[in-house]
Design a protein around this nucleic acid. Sequence first.
DNA 1: CCCCCCCC
Length: 620
Amino acid sequence: MASQLSVGAIAAIMEGDKRDKPVFQIVGCKKLQASSTSKPGDRYRLLLTDSIHNCSVMLATQLNPKVTSGYFHAKALIQMTNYTCTAIAPNKKVIVILDAEIVADAQSVGDKVIGNGKLYQGSSTSNQPIPQGTSRPMQGNDMNSPSSKQGFQSNIQSPVASSKGSYGGNFSRVGAGMNNNMGSPPKCQPIASLTPYQNRWTIKVRVTNKSDIRTWSNSRGEGKLFSMDLVDQSGEIRATAFKDQCDKFYDMVEKGKVYFLSKGTLKPANKQYTSIKNDYELTFNSETTMMPCEDEDSTIPNVQFDFRTISDLQDINPDSMVDIIGVAKSAGDVQTVTIRSSNREVAKRDVSVIDDSGKVVNLTLWGKEAEGFDASSNPVVAVKGARLSSFGGRSLSVLQSSIFQINPDIPRAHSLKGWYDSEGHQQEAQSISENRTMGGGGSTNWLTFQEVQQQNLGSGEKPDYFTTKATILFAKKENCMYMACPSEQCNKKVIENGDGTFRCEKCSKDYHEFQYRLLLQCNVADMTDNQWITCFQETAEAILGRKADMLGALRDQDEAEFNQIFQDAFFSDYIFRMRIKMETYNDEARMKCTCLSVQKLDPAEYAKKLINDIKTLAVS
DNA sequence: CCCCCCCC
């Protein structure tokens, strides 16, 4: 078996000799950089031996599953079917494995490391000192570091790398290509090899996503930016161009095109905002150059997905970014929602997506993507960088930064479509996004008022939502309605001009009529506590059992009857959907609890829910 | 240097 080894190939490759599909033995594996808690950023290095030399090589991220699955295992023989060897600094080269397979497992080589290879530290003929600013050589003992999460054990003593060794021998100058005027094609290195510790580099990348220009203004200043996702065979990276660079590069950057990109600032990526698999992000600076690649290089891949199954989503932390693919089983109508913070209106559509894990998840589309989406042909939808939320259990939202594709031409899409057409469509599938039955609206998060307090709901940046069963104790008659603008959707309070007309400041208009709107303060109680809540028009009408205009007329004409309506409303049970948020009025902070929907208690339905709760308790 | 991504 050992005869399969490509003896001497490590030195040969590092010295510029292209070897076809060389076979090495895996000595160990190391997971790089425990910088992030999020799963996607992992990157691995393998320590390989050809029995003469050992060498640490990087793995392209698409091969991560071959590490985590245990397919790449210590002592096994690995054949590199596709790889690059690139100079990343004058005296340093790195091999990146783009594809490889195991040709003999550990057992078949006696579970022993073959030979007694020494760490490859560069050409023996070269004896140059380590240049300044070069990152340190990869050392064999990295492979055996206790931080390795893979549990690979090497039974050879790793050579103790001496910093006096010499590195590399046969290198080309990298990064100069963009700036010389000789017209020679730039020498490129893989995205995967970029680090903050070198600044002269060129990468050849495809732009797979490009944002609009966005402006910002905050306490740290203001400006504008656009960002883009870049990929090559070795991996991917997110890049952002601010201000001057934003203006300089925005127009030339085209989604789908290939570019030579040289120089820029690398900084640690904030995984919270991206599913791009790189520990770093690239910021353009004044030295950055970008040149379209004339020939459309088909060896540079397009969007790289790392799909999770819908079933997987149940075990992934909410608020993380995920790639997902599935069949659009059905879609709701387009809705228009008003963004509370900005009062903007935006279109929204919920899509039920299923995959062959047998689970369904709700995926929310926004804006144009919502308006234009048609689920009638059950298209495959793929999203890179969707946000997972805990709403209704688990649900997904497509962000501006996401890549949303309908019927992408990738193998997984075709197999899913085939699965759906042949069997998936008739499958009784279970949704991981809660069904909206009990309670009338997203009835997740059933809480008592005491629990709401104990959990400090409402004290965060964003409002919290909960559902509760409670009883109306009291509703204030005083100020329970106001004269509102008669125009559709305005609802703003009008001022009587005194001449029989009514002024709406929001519309800047005078009207001959107004409409009554309800704004009802209710005190409601469950078995743990009571709470003042605000009910607007529809919910107040439901509680009082009368329409607002009718109540307005009654108040003016028949006060006794008006009072009776309130009396009748007390001590009724409802299921309330609430929004709670700390708000400040005249420097006074108080918890504001708004009723979003209300449904008269159906005792039989509620009893079913309670029985279900008891069953759940009994199991856990 | 952004990082908002909405609704419930």
